[in-house]
């Protein structure tokens, strides 16, 4: 169906996914705006999805793609709850800086 896919060795998508995961981790560690941190977590989830799709294609088994489908729905649920938390925090603290959310530290 897509002739390009037949010549793609599996290592290159995996390396791309590894790089994207590292970039996402960099966003989590270096940025302090809570929305950007949340989007960086999404970036890491997305990188893992790319890994699953690449391995699924290399092994010629559909299970990996089914797993990505479930991961997609869980990511949607996570973003909904996470953004609700962001809104609630912004209302009670008046800022969206992750360093301000230290009241759970005791």
């Amino acid at each position: 169906m897509i002739p390009l896919a037949a010549v793609l060795p599996p290592a290159q998508p995996l390396m791309l996914a590894a790089l994207l995961f590292t970039i996402g981790a960099a966003g989590v560690l270096l940025r302090r705006n809570i929305i950007i941190v949340l989007m960086s977590v999404e970036l890491m989830l997305n990188a893992v999805n790319i890994t699953l799709v690449a391995v699924s294609r290399a092994m010629l088994q559909l299970d990996g793609q089914v797993f990505v489908f479930f991961s997609l729905t869980i990511a949607a649920a996570e973003v909904a709850v996470g953004l609700a938390l962001v809104v609630a925090l912004h209302r009670s603290l008046g800022s969206s800086d992750v360093d301000d959310v230290s009241s759970l530290r005791g």
């Binding site: 290592a11 390396m15 590894a18 790089l19 590292t22 981790a25 690449a54």
Partner: peptide, 19 residues
């Protein structure tokens, strides 16, 4: 992050066995 990225890319470069 440098350590993490180097380790991940090194492992990913091994690839996966074919079908």
């Amino acid at each position: 992050l440098g350590v993490l990225g180097a380790a991940l890319v090194r492992v990913a470069a091994l690839g996966v066995p074919a079908a």
